[in-house]
Every structure is written in C-alpha cells, then in structure tokens.
Computed example of a mutant assay.
Amino acid sequence: MTLQDLDLDVYLTPEDLAAGLRTDARTGLSASPKWLPPKYFYDARGSELFEEITRLPEYYPTRAERSILAERAPAIARITGAKTLIELGSGSSEKTRLLLDALREHGTLGSFTPLDVSESALRHALDDLHRDYPDLHLHGIVADFVNHLEVLPETGTRLVAFLGGTIGNFTPAERAPFLSALRDRLAPGEFLLLGADLVKSPAVLIPAYADAAGVTAEFNRNVLRVLNRELGATFDPSRFAHVALWDEANEWIEMRLRSAVPQTVRLEALDLDITFGRGEELRTEVSAKFRRDGLTAELAAAGFAVRDWWTDREDRFALTLAAAV
C-alpha cells in the first residue's frame, strides 16, 4: 500500500475548507463579542504546537486519557466485540492503537475507519498504520464529523471512538444535536467510546491552558497567522495577549485573545475591516468540563445508555462507554 492507493474517501475538499473559513471568519469577527471556531488552530504549525502542548507538565488530559485506555482497552474489546472501529477527528490515531491492539487480540477486529478533515494528515496516518497493521482493512474518510456523519461505514458491529475531550469544544446546544445525529447512525447495541475532561479545581485547569513556557499562547495566536495566510489578513499576533479563563457558571475553560491596543485589521479576501478596542477579546475556544451525572443525562437524551465509566487514578479525565438503545 502506498500513499497513492490507500482506501480513502474524500467528502471535504480544500475548497470546502476555504469556503468554511471565509464564512466563519466573517460571521465570528463581525459578532459582538467576537469569536472563531477552534478548528482553525490546526494548520501544520498549529498541529505541531498542540503535540508540544500534550507533552507539557501542566497539560494532563492526553496522559490521563492514555492511562485509561492502557488499562481498559481489553475490557472495551471484550464488551463491544467490535468488528469495525471508527475514530472521529482521528489525527495521528496514536492513542487509538491501544484499542486496535486490544480488539485484534480479542479476535473481532476487521477494519479501522479514521475520519479527519485533513487529507494529507490522514494519508500519512494510514500509511503508518498499514506498516504496523498490514492485515487490517483501513478505510480513511476525509470529512467533518459534525456535517458528514452519514458517510460512516455500516459494515460490522461498530465502535465509534471520539477521544481527546473534543466533545468539550461543543456548547450544550451544539452537543445535543451532534450526539443525537451520531446515535441515529448506529444500530441498537453498537457503541460510542467518549473521552471527556472532568470538572476540577481551576488551580489545575487554568495552567493546562496557560502553561509557563507559553506554548499554549503561541498555539492560540496561531489562528491569527492562519487568517493572515488564508484570507490576506493583517493581524499582528504580538498585539494580542493569550487569556485562559474558568467560567464557573458554564463549567468550561475559555481561551481568548485580548487586543493590547486599539487597532483595525484588514481581511483582504473578505473585503472586511475589523476594529478592536484596547482590551477587547476574541474567543477562540470553549473547552467544557463534565460531571458524571450530567454527561450520562446528555447521552441518555440522545439515545445512549452508559455501560461503563472509567477515570484515571486522579479522577481528572473519563472514558465513557455507551451503547445505542
């Protein structure tokens, strides 16, 4: 198998991504307060920065989730008996290899379908996976998991993995229809494995999003560089400070960029000028944190029954195994 002949379906083209960016930038930057979706952090540089973040001492979620998977993957394989593993927002699928190994050892796994918005990243990941799992059928899908759930394969008993706490980037109003749409794509008895960060002290949460080395600050400001490159914008990232706040009422972290000076930014591709007052903030991410009862209720409302709930040893992060009912 080569990069050229992978089993890969493309439902999201670079032109689609560019159109989405133009729409989101015009809508979000014209709003009050201003906002941008977090998915635009992740160009090549942003992905490198995020990988660096996952290795920082303050950033616990990746290590915590991996520790749960390392301990519980055999049980997940035994309970689900999955023949097809699907991963939403797969990236490199590095942690997912723990599930692949456990399902293969259990003797049920026949295929793996990673879904991601980046065709180049997905091709690279599939090539690496084929080298290490040469007998496993690999079927990559280039798509947006919010808008393209209908393209998920329907072969074999399925386990859908949605890891990394990405569910926290949805507001409650966004989570409900997403989870319901995902349930509608599954048959009764098929499974969702959901990674979710848990509510905890702001003394732990805030440093995870505002590390001492400033890597998260550079990651946050990277969205401005994306707009500069893709939309001919004139953002000066040095004029924006990184802010991470704990919203106790909503139980989520907000990442923002705060304008250090009054300024006007031109977005040439949109023929749009955006003004910022001194201290005005642009919200770039919401990262909701969860409690067991609340997440169980949200899953039940969408048509899932929680089968198991596992946390790391410090109760910082949870993996929820839920069955479609």
Score class of each variant (00 low, 15 high):
144 D>I: 08
49 L>A: 09
190 E>T: 05
311 T>F: 05
64 A>G: 09
89 G>P: 02
210 A>I: 01
175 R>I: 06
52 E>V: 06
92 S>F: 03
262 P>D: 11
302 A>Q: 11
39 K>Y: 02
281 E>S: 01
300 A>N: 13
169 N>M: 06
308 D>Q: 15
304 F>V: 03
34 K>L: 00
249 A>D: 11
244 A>H: 06
192 L>Q: 05
163 L>M: 15
107 G>S: 12
292 R>T: 04
35 W>Q: 12
200 K>T: 04
27 T>C: 08
104 R>L: 15
156 G>Q: 09
143 A>K: 08
8 L>R: 05
168 G>Y: 00
284 T>D: 00
212 A>S: 14
147 N>V: 00
42 Y>K: 02
193 L>S: 10
123 R>I: 13
314 E>D: 15
45 R>A: 14
57 P>N: 05
40 Y>W: 14
194 L>A: 01
62 T>D: 07
223 V>W: 01
169 N>I: 03
194 L>C: 06
303 G>H: 03
234 T>R: 09
56 L>G: 04
268 E>A: 15
241 A>E: 15
229 R>Y: 09
91 G>T: 07
280 E>G: 07
145 F>Y: 15
306 V>I: 05
152 L>T: 02
280 E>Q: 15
247 D>W: 03
87 E>T: 08
306 V>H: 07
311 T>W: 05
288 A>L: 11
185 R>A: 09
254 E>N: 03
80 T>G: 13
194 L>V: 04
85 L>V: 13
177 P>I: 00
37 P>F: 00
192 L>M: 12
81 G>D: 08
180 S>A: 15
47 S>Q: 06
130 H>V: 05
41 F>T: 05
252 W>H: 14
29 L>R: 08
108 T>I: 07
211 D>V: 04
246 W>I: 00
173 A>I: 04
211 D>R: 00
150 E>K: 14
321 L>D: 06
265 V>H: 13
273 D>E: 15
304 F>A: 08
79 I>L: 15
246 W>R: 01
318 A>G: 13
139 H>E: 12
48 E>V: 02
77 A>G: 08
286 V>I: 15
10 V>E: 03
322 A>H: 08
242 H>V: 11
86 I>W: 07
42 Y>F: 12
223 V>T: 10
247 D>G: 00
88 L>H: 10
140 G>Y: 08
286 V>D: 04
22 R>W: 02
143 A>Q: 13
120 S>F: 07
171 T>A: 10
139 H>A: 14
